[in-house]
Amino acid sequence: MAVYAALLYLPASEYFETPDPGVAHKPSDSFQQFMAEAIPAGVIKSGEALYQPEMATTITVQGGKGGDAIVTDGPYAEAKEVLGGYFIIEVADLDEAIKWAAKMPPAFEGGKVELRPVLLRQR
């Protein structure tokens, strides 16, 4: 079996409605449909939706570990497509991962899905 991160990119102009803090986000009908199929199939290990990039905070540390944390608002650059969420999936191989990725709504709703194999961690 192989584990992939399916990174869900959305057109920045069509980011989903983000709720106020503390209010639960209701996935769109297409996402609910996808999960209704993928969860019983045992494909999804985890996954989350993310607030839009404007809500992001970016941190770099200057001068090596323990140095000054430089905190900036938002992402580094304006992007046409932004990360909107991810799934961690476990499937037999890339062909199977591609099949599931093609069913994830961003893939057919103007965005895209990037599949990244997850590194095996040393124990």
Binding site: A2, Y4, A92, D93, L94, D95, A97, L115, P117
Partner: peptide
Amino acid sequence: ATAGIPYKVPDDAE
């Protein structure tokens, strides 16, 4: 190897 490209013949549907 790392992306898990399978070593197999696609089935008729694929």
